[in-house]
Design a protein around this nucleic acid. Structure first.
Length: 286
DNA sequence: CACCACCCCTGGACGC
DNA sequence: TGCGTCCAGGGGTGGT
């Protein structure tokens, strides 16, 4: 499942392939994956989806990736659980050709030839949305997101955690509190900070708060460097899988020994999400 | 506003 | 081999 590190890595892998590319043709195989989050005054017809434009820039915010064209219009991609953006050079075929919902035919420059960008998403939790400008996206949808998690400071984290008494695990998964953290890195960061996932968010202050901020930055940055987690469906723009999954200390390791104290890791459900932690290393109310 | 249950969806694991 | 059942979970929506 792609979280922030996967999207960031995806962006980096797509940059040299897409920048300057001209969008020759669009095939929207499943129109219902285009969703509208705009208000009335900003609404534009999503039919073109950058057709006829040249791709100028890619920007990430949280787990969302925006493709910005020459005329300023934007396609924002959210991969959800199983979404993929895959670049296929001319003449090659995608490894899996089912569940492809949108195809952008691209003409690159003379040196790079042609190719296509595919949006594939078996489970269809992902979506595409369209904006007149990056400002429209930033002032509406992205404005609801919390601060970026890889650069979160202790002070800002404390401010955000003060907004809720929910368990810290639930708060970390809330994109309005903190942008980019999903189930994998929430568990990993809590383990690294030795915080119990049920700890009330507002009660985390002082040193534990500083530890959590540091753990979040560290876990996310290391995951970005490793190319993402590559659980189940994640691949980058070239179809490559990431390698961070082998470094998970708690995620999907319930019942296995804690890497620190060897006690078997516990599994529970918080905010509807599977949560793994070490009850020995991550004590409640300290 | 805060919070939560519910819903969307398919593939893979597992039991028989 | 095949079929039913359960589970994974990001995030929007609507109810309390």
């Amino acid at each position: 499942m792609p979280e922030l590190p996967e999207i960031e890595h995806l962006k980096q892998s797509l940059l040299p392939l897409l920048i300057g590319a001209e969008v020759r043709q669009i095939r929207l195989h499943r129109p219902d994956i285009v969703r509208d989050f705009t208000n009335k005054s900003q609404r534009i017809t999503p039919k073109r989806l950058l057709k006829g434009q040249r791709i100028k820039e890619l920007t990430r915010r949280g787990k969302q990736l925006a493709i910005i064209s020459d005329d300023g219009s934007v396609v924002c991609v959210q991969l959800g659980m199983t979404g993929q953006l895959i670049f296929i050079p001319q003449g090659k075929k995608p490894q899996q050709s089912n569940h492809i919902h949108c195809t952008w035919q691209l003409a690159l420059d003379n040196f790079r030839g042609r190719g296509k960008l595919l949006f594939r998403d078996p489970r269809r939790f992902g979506c595409i949305s369209v904006y007149r400008s990056i400002e429209d996206l930033q002032t509406t949808r992205w404005a609801k997101l919390g601060p970026e998690s890889p650069t979160i400071t202790t002070k800002v984290l404390k401010q955000q955690l003060n907004r809720t008494i929910r368990p810290i695990k639930a708060a970390l998964l809330d994109q309005a509190i903190l942008a980019g953290v999903g189930n994998i890195y929430a568990d990993e960061a809590l383990f690294a900070a030795k915080l119990h996932p049920m700890t009330p968010a507002r009660s985390i202050e002082g040193k534990p708060c500083a530890n959590l901020a540091r753990s979040l930055r560290s876990v996310l940055k290391r995951a970005i460097a490793a190319g993402g987690s590559s659980i189940s469906d994640y691949v980058d723009g070239n179809g490559q899988t990431g390698s961070f999954s082998s470094k998970h200390k708690v995620y999907q390791r319930a019942g296995k020994p804690c890497v620190s104290c060897k006690a078997p890791l516990c599994r529970t459900t918080i905010a509807g999400r599977s949560t793994v932690y070490c009850e020995n290393c991550q004590k409640l109310n300290k």
